[in-house]
Write a protein that binds this DNA or RNA. Sequence first.
RNA 1: GAAGCAGAUCGCCUUAUCGCGUCUCGAUUCAUCGAGAUGAGGAAAGUCCGGACACCAUAGUGCAAUAUAGUGGUUAAUGGCCACCAGUCGUGAGACUAGGAAAAGUGCAACAGAAAGUAUGUACAGGUAAUGCUGUAGUGAAACCAGGUAAACUCUAUUAGGUGCAAUGUCAUGUAUACCAGCGUUUGAGCGUGCACGCGCGAUUGUUGGAGGGUAGGCAGCUAAAGUGUGCCAGCAAUGGUUCACGUAGAUAAAUGAUAAGGGCUCGAAAGAGUACAGAAUCCGGCUUAUAGAUCUGCUUUUUUU
RNA 2: GGAGGCGUAGCUCAGCUGGAUAGAGCAUUGCCCUUCUAAGGCAACGGUCAUAGGUUCGAAUCCUAUCGCCUUCA
Length: 122
Amino acid sequence: MKLTYNKTEKLKSEKAIGKLFVEGKSISAYPLRLVYLKNETIGLKVGVSVSKRNFKKAVDRTYIKRLLRENYRLNKNMLIGNNIDDYSFMILYIGKEKPDFKLISTKMKALFSKFNVRISNN
RNA sequence: GAAGCAGAUCGCCUUAUCGCGUCUCGAUUCAUCGAGAUGAGGAAAGUCCGGACACCAUAGUGCAAUAUAGUGGUUAAUGGCCACCAGUCGUGAGACUAGGAAAAGUGCAACAGAAAGUAUGUACAGGUAAUGCUGUAGUGAAACCAGGUAAACUCUAUUAGGUGCAAUGUCAUGUAUACCAGCGUUUGAGCGUGCACGCGCGAUUGUUGGAGGGUAGGCAGCUAAAGUGUGCCAGCAAUGGUUCACGUAGAUAAAUGAUAAGGGCUCGAAAGAGUACAGAAUCCGGCUUAUAGAUCUGCUUUUUUU
RNA sequence: GGAGGCGUAGCUCAGCUGGAUAGAGCAUUGCCCUUCUAAGGCAACGGUCAUAGGUUCGAAUCCUAUCGCCUUCA
C-alpha cells in the first residue's frame, strides 16, 4: 500500500469533528493525543491540530502540523488490518515545546501500537 | 585605517528518496491513475491610513460626530511621498518638528510670590508738589501693562452617507414572510444603517407576546493587476510618458513539506556551534513594527602617508 | 479575514472625562482586646500606574506607536 494522505482522507466536516470530540475515546503518548471514533458512514478521516494557546506564531503551528501529517503518512501501515476504514481520527499535539522530527516519529509509533492493543482487546 | 550618516539590494544552495495543493493533457472501471508545468514575503505581521470592488441608502436641507493643518508639487487616493522655507539638535554628513489662528470669545496655571489680571504692592535706589511715578532685587515655567496654554473648549480652511469578501450572488436542504393571539389603522404605527425636519412607501405591513423548524455544505466572487523589470525622454525630486521583455500562489480544520548526504557563509586554534525575523486567506498603494548576516553606492569627521 | 474593548498594590476595583496628595476593600505583618481562637480596633508593609516616545512648567490622566489579554461576526 502506498503511503499517502490526500485531500479525501482529511477530516473536514464540522459536524463529524463535533461528534468525534463529544463521543470519541482518546489515548495519549505525551506529547501526542489520539481521539478516535467508529464512524462507518464517512470512511477513514484523519485530522491534526495544534493549540493556538501553546504556540502563538503561525509558523510554529504549521511546522508541527506538517510533522504530524508526515508521520501519520509514514506510519499508517501500522494501523492496517484493524478495519481503520471505519474510524475517524484526530491527532492533537498537547506539548508546549517545539518538537523535532525524531520525537514525533517515535511517539507516533508508540501511539499507534497502543491503539492497536486497545482495538484488538475489544 | 578608524568612527559615523544617508540610500539601495540580497537574505542559504545542490542532489537523491517519499509526499501535498492547483492547472493542463491522456487513460478510463467515474473517482482514480499516469505525465508535465507551477506553488510564501520583505515584511505575507500589526490593522494605523488610503483606494479598488460589493451591498444598503440616495428628492433634499440642517445639526452633530471624524480627520488633517508652513508653501508648492505628486498620485486612483491618503494623514503617504518629494522639493523648498522656518525652528530645534549634532563638529559634520544629516536627523527631527500635529509648523494655521491667542487683535472673536470662554476656560486653565499647584507650590512659591505683594500680585498669575476686574491686577497689586515689599526692600533698596532715583525722581516728584504728591502718588507704583521709574529702575533693580526677590518668587516662579511665565510678571510694568504685556504674555503662556489651542495633543483645553473654540474659530478658520479642507475632508467625509453607512457597512464590509464572515460583503454579495447562486445551487442544494427547508412549509420559513411557517403559524396563533393582542394592539395600532390615513387624525400617520413603523422603516429608510448618527439625529432632526421633510419626503417616499404603506396591511402581502408594523409592533408585543406565544409557539416552533432548519443550516453552518458546494460553486461563483478569486486573481492579468492603478502589474513587474529594463533602456530612453521630461522633471531638482516624488513621479509621469514611451520601447522591449516577463505573464507571476489561489488554499478553505486551510497546499507550498519531510528525511538523508554534500557544499556555502559566520564564530572558533581545534573539536564543534550558529545560519535571522517570520507563513499568503478579496486585491492593490503607503505607514509602523520584527529581522542572524552579507553586498553595493554617495557623503562626513578624525588619524597617518604622499 | 473584519469590527470593538480593557491593562493602576499579591487579588477585586476607584481616580482618567475636566492635568498638580496615587487611594479603598480583601490579603500579609505587628500590637491591642480574649484563658485561647474567630470577629473587632489601631498601625505598618506593598506601585517603573502594561512598554516607549511626544505635548506641557508639570502626565496614571492628553496625543502617537508598540506589547499583552478579552469579546464579537453566518
